[in-house]
Amino acid sequence: MTNLTVSRSTPASTIAMVALGTAIIILFAAPWWAGRSELRLLGEIFLYMSLATLWNFLAGYAGLVSVGQQAYVGLGGYMFFAATIFWGLSPLVALPIAALIGAAISAPVAALIFRLRGAYFAIGTWVVAEVFRLTFAQISALGGGSGTSLPVSVAQSLADGRDAREALTYWLALGIAVVVIGAVFAFLRSRRGVALMAIRDNELAAKSLGIDIWWTKFTVYVVTAGLTTLVGGLIFLQKLRISPDAAFSVNDSTAFVIFIVVIGGIGTLEGPILGTLVYFALRETLADYGTIYLIALGVVAIAIMLFAPKGLWGLIRGHRGTELFPLSRRVRGLTEKGQ
């Protein structure tokens, strides 16, 4: 027994973490090597990667299949606008404040919709998002149904000059992707993450082994809501304009995100990241073909659900459980003992 150790990293995960660190450094320097349009594309990729990671955290790990995450994307946008326009906060302060408000609002929402299960829960989340949309359409100070634009002074307060602003919003998007993926990774590595993965696999066994399922799911829901609100704030800082229909769009904030997670591989950290890259590769090559682009996305989704139900990462992962983010625990030294 004495020569047995438990280790969390594998050679593959160590290489992956080093590669990820290098990639973040190279991407951080993008404003010096990339053009304005590439910068915008990368920024959008990071935001979708964040949304996909968060939706996967909710649906893939906690089993909370929500089709209403646009509620928090939209809330983030509106809270960000309200905080900068009415309260005169700097955009950099307004973003975390929006996230805190999102998390605070999500707690009573969770208490309400957690009474629903499965498909009813999914519909319930959508209803909540519609309620949010209709509510913000009533607030005339924020433009009511037609929406409002971010005052030029707010955008200008971000940085001097257009290039500097573009670079700063890019860094914010990169930073948020790092924060979101890092936060989900840290959660999954913690004691509560062990509980969450147990719930993902078998709820009956999980509760019989001392895991409080409701409380664990509640925590995941609130954390996800807060971070989704943060992403939403940044999305609308980039767009500079908000309206209820754009803010609470089930297509932009949830449908494409579900597509990304499903093709990438649900219930793994790697899946949504891979899925985002595949989605943007498809979009950048096919978007000019109009309707055919959406048909192609549909065909890809159907093909993957039929032939690789665990997504592309599920195929790569295989039965050996290869992982890039070190989450598992492996016992080392078994063969040396000749067992």
Binding site: A195, M197, N202, A206, G267, G321, S328, R330
Partner: peptide, 12 residues
């Protein structure tokens, strides 16, 4: 817990 190893099952 099907997607976890025997050790991880015990660890839970």
């Amino acid at each position: 817990f099907g997607a976890m190893t025997i050790f991880e099952n015990a660890f839970v």
